[in-house]
Write a protein that binds this DNA or RNA. Structure first.
Lengths: 151, 151
DNA sequence: GCCCTGATGTTCAAATCTGAACAACCAGTA
DNA sequence: TACTGGTTGTTCAGATTTGAACATCAGGGC
């Protein structure tokens, strides 16, 4: 049993601020997307990732890792998006097991319509409130912990 | 219709890194707490807030705002924690409608037992990977957006 | 005292998420 | 070829979350 390493004031303040802010922002984003387009945040992230991907398509597992949700959650959400006509499933040519999620034209149009309002929220509460230095510091810091979490 | 203000490379990098990291860390924390104590992250946060509060008790609404969950989610979780004997409900003396969530001795012991392992995760992936400067920068930046989100 | 606006906490239905179990498939090896 | 270990995506049951609706109470103005 090793000694417990508590957090000092600086560390605790940083952790608490990070935690509260991420939760509050998540809620605000969810609210905006729901009102503007009837989308959840994971659904929106799926559309974004697919739009950025070559051929506007991605394997299910790869997509799940990118969006950071479980495989079953992605299966569920892709089914929802398929019903809405924003995404289609295609069989993977190189792997018989594989499934490709493909962004439809409607999906692309939906994303283009929704993105501005979404970015407005990201700006209003986060990006526009941080200095250039703060943005850069956050990027390097977050990437360092992201890398550790993905290994 | 105002012009859409897209995010430039620096802004996008910061936002993406923040988003992915917060989700990954959330998942890792959830996993650790579940394995170590059968607790969810919101449940753990409830215990922490109550332990810090005067008299180890808090009003439901105040607690919900602190933990950043809906009122109904808190009602559900307090019921769960009550079944586990970690929290009790008490009527509020000053307000007939009010309900006080009170941390029991068992709840306090549970928290003391679980906290070290939890903090180990927070350290391993976030706090110990950031410099003092980065921690302080993050605190001021996060607090600024938190304040905006809470108004 | 009485009314009105707002706050408080719960209940409810619906949606979503997770992990485990599963069937199908791939790749490498004997 | 047949086997073995690992990957892929889905299904399923259970747990959790949210927002709306609701009954109740507080505080102030008349």
């Amino acid at each position: 049993m090793t000694q417990t390493r508590w957090l000092d004031a600086t560390e605790m303040a940083a952790w608490r601020a990070f935690l509260s802010t991420s939760h509050l922002l998540e809620r605000r984003i969810e609210e905006q997307l729901k009102a503007a387009a009837g989308l959840t945040h994971p659904q929106y992230e799926i559309l974004v990732r697919l739009a950025d991907a070559p051929g506007r398509q991605m394997r299910m597992t790869e997509l799940a890792k990118g969006v950071v949700v479980s495989k079953s959650a992605l299966t569920y959400q892709i089914t929802q998006l398929e019903k809405a006509g924003l995404v289609e499933r295609a069989t993977c040519p190189s792997d018989e097991r594989g499934v490709l999620a493909v962004l439809t034209d409607d999906g692309m149009r939906c994303l283009e319509r929704v993105a501005p309002g979404h970015l407005e929220v990201v700006r209003a509460y986060l990006v526009d409130r941080l200095t250039r230095d703060e943005l850069e510091t956050m990027t390097t810091a977050m990437r360092r912990t992201e890398q550790a979490l993905r290994r």
